[in-house]
Amino acid sequence: MMMQEQIREEAGGTVLFDASRAPAVGADWFDPGYWRGRGALQTQGGGRGGVAVIDTLAGACVLRHYHRGGLIARFNRDSYLWTGAAHTRSFAEFRLLAHIASLELPAPAPLAARYRRHGLSYTADLITRRIDDARTLAQCLADHRLDADLARETGALVARFHREGIWHADLNAHNVLVTPQALYLIDFDRGALRKPAEAWRLANLARLRRSLVKLGAPERIPDFQAAIWGPLVYGYERTMGA
């Protein structure tokens, strides 16, 4: 289905949406209370992402409010410096996901994005289609389901994005989703299209490795380097060279 990008200005913010999937998206779509009142709020989680799962006319979706992380979050919870609509976190991620969808790469399809400007700052939200029956690579590790085959598939997944010049700003085991049918990358906040270069590709892989190490993979899996990381790199290199 060809995306039909539309923008709507409302008192509750500026909304960018895919009219081919949802012909009428308003600012109220970004309020979990709106979905709760309609009996369409499945779950609402905490954490930095402020994620809610909602039932929309376009199907089950994930609603995420952008929150800051790190030390700055102690003083500034969710505001970002205004530098123009196209540079807002939500609009940028929406359009990157739309590009990814046009390449038929496995990532959540974007449904709608919003920003609310407050003078020199703004807040932002994003709605994407939910990926069903999924668990993260981190959960697979914790459940002792990360093996050489899954590692190879993970490497191949990352390579497919890298071949198209897609850089993931936070490539870690929590942002790889595993379903019975396929693997997906999620959370492309601050992601970007980059010119082919070995340096950023290797840095991206190194970030993923640090994530697995931080989650205790070397302690959980005997000979982690040969049993998991070697197959992952093999799957990556084989796909990059295909």
Rank of each mutant, 00 (worst) to 15 (best):
A86E: 15
G84Y: 01
H99S: 06
L205S: 13
S102H: 12
A107E: 08
A109P: 00
I186D: 08
A134R: 10
F91I: 07
E164L: 05
T154A: 10
A85E: 14
A85Q: 12
R152Y: 08
L105W: 03
A142S: 13
I131P: 00
H99Q: 12
T154E: 03
V158N: 13
L146E: 11
A109I: 06
D143F: 00
L141P: 04
K195F: 15
S102A: 15
W200S: 04
L81F: 12
R145A: 14
G84W: 02
L193M: 14
R95Q: 11
R77V: 11
L157P: 01
P110N: 09
A134E: 12
R77I: 06
G155C: 02
R135L: 07
L126N: 06
D170E: 12
N175Y: 00
L177R: 01
A85H: 11
I131H: 00
A148M: 06
D78F: 14
C140F: 09
A199M: 03
I100W: 02
A134T: 10
H174M: 02
D187W: 13
D149P: 01
A197I: 12
A98E: 14
E153H: 13
G165I: 05
N204R: 06
D78R: 13
A101M: 01
A148E: 09
A203M: 08
L202Y: 02
L150E: 11
A142T: 10
E198P: 07
